[in-house]
Amino acid sequence: ITIHVNGVTYHFDNPEEAEKFAQKMAKTYQLKMEIHNGEFHME
């Protein structure tokens, strides 16, 4: 699972971890999250 946050790329093997991380980042930084081709993009 690949997550892009403001141009920084994070890779996770565990989908649950990826989702937790994505939600935490979105909440902490008030980010808008989109999913493209199974990759999370946040800005």
Rank of each mutant, 00 (worst) to 15 (best):
P15S: 09
H36Q: 06
F40A: 04
Y29D: 14
M42T: 03
G7K: 07
E16D: 11
D13I: 12
V5T: 02
Y29K: 04
G38Y: 05
P15F: 13
N37E: 05
K24A: 09
I35K: 03
Y10H: 04
Q23A: 11
H4N: 04
M25V: 04
L31D: 12
T9R: 13
E16S: 09
E43P: 05
T2E: 04
A26L: 11
M33F: 10
N37Y: 09
F40R: 02
K24S: 06
I1H: 03
E19D: 08
I35E: 05
A18P: 00
I1S: 03
L31I: 09
Y29N: 12
G38Q: 03
M33P: 01
T28K: 14
P15M: 13
F12Y: 02
T2I: 11
T28A: 11
I1M: 07
I3G: 02
H36Y: 11
G7R: 07
E17I: 09
A26I: 12
H4Y: 12
Q23E: 09
E16A: 09
K20E: 09
H36I: 14
I1V: 07
I3N: 00
H11M: 07
T28M: 14
E34M: 12
E39V: 08
K24M: 13
I3E: 00
V8G: 05
P15W: 14
H41W: 14
L31K: 03
H11G: 02
A18W: 05
K32R: 05
Q23P: 00
A26F: 10
E43N: 10
Y10S: 00
H41E: 03
Q30W: 09
K20Q: 10
A22P: 00
T2W: 13
N6Q: 11
F21S: 00
E17A: 10
Y10L: 04
E39A: 07
Y29S: 08
V8S: 08
K20T: 10
K24H: 14
F40W: 15
I1A: 04
M33H: 01
E39D: 06
V8R: 13
N14V: 09
M42H: 03
G7T: 06
K20L: 11
G7L: 12
D13C: 15
T9W: 05
N6T: 07
N37H: 09
H11S: 07
Q23K: 08
A26P: 01
H4D: 02
I3P: 00
T28G: 02
E19V: 13
V8C: 15
T9N: 05
A18F: 07
P15D: 05
F12D: 00
M42I: 06
H4M: 05
F12R: 00
K32T: 14
H41K: 04
K20W: 07
K24V: 12
M42L: 12
H41S: 05
E34W: 14
A22N: 01
E16V: 10
H11V: 08
L31G: 07
E16P: 03
N6V: 13
M25Q: 02
Q23D: 07
K24L: 13
E43H: 13
E19N: 12
N37D: 07
K32H: 13
E16C: 15
N14C: 10
M33D: 02
F21W: 11
E43S: 12
I3V: 12
E34H: 13
K20C: 15
K24E: 13
T9P: 14
M25A: 02
V8L: 10
I1R: 07
D13V: 11
T28D: 15
L31E: 12
M42P: 04
Q23L: 11
E39I: 10
Q23V: 11
H11A: 07
Q30P: 14
Q30D: 08
H4G: 02
N6W: 15
D13S: 12
K27T: 07
I35S: 04
E34I: 14
Q23N: 07
T2Q: 06
A26Q: 06
M25S: 01
Y29P: 14
M25W: 08
K20F: 08
K27V: 11
D13H: 11
A26V: 04
T28R: 14
Q30Y: 09
K27P: 11
T2M: 07
V5I: 09
T9E: 05
E39L: 04
K20H: 10
K20A: 11
H4K: 06
N37W: 10
I35M: 06
H11E: 05
I3R: 01
N37G: 07
H36P: 02
L31A: 04
G7V: 15
K24C: 15
T2C: 14
T28S: 05
E43K: 13
V5D: 01
Y29A: 08
V8T: 09
Y10D: 00
E43W: 15
H41N: 03
K27D: 13
T9V: 11
N6C: 15
K20Y: 08
N14I: 11
A22V: 13
M25R: 01
Y29W: 04
E43L: 14
Y10W: 08
E39M: 06
V8H: 09
A22H: 02
G7Y: 11
K32I: 14
D13G: 09
M42F: 11
K27W: 13
M25P: 00
A26K: 07
Y10R: 01
N14H: 06
Y10P: 00
K32E: 13
M25N: 01
I35G: 04
F12W: 02
E43I: 15
H4L: 06
D13A: 11
Y29Q: 08
M33S: 02
N14A: 06
F12H: 00
E16I: 10
E16W: 10
G38E: 04
G38S: 03
E16M: 10
V5M: 06
H4S: 03
M33K: 00
K24N: 06
E34Y: 15
N6R: 12
Y10C: 14
E17F: 06
N37V: 06
H11D: 03
E39Y: 06
T2H: 14
Q23T: 11
T2F: 13
E19I: 13
A18L: 04
E39K: 05
M42W: 06
H4I: 07
D13K: 08
F12I: 01
V5S: 02
E39F: 05
H36L: 11
T9F: 06
E19Y: 14
A26M: 13
E43D: 05
N6H: 12
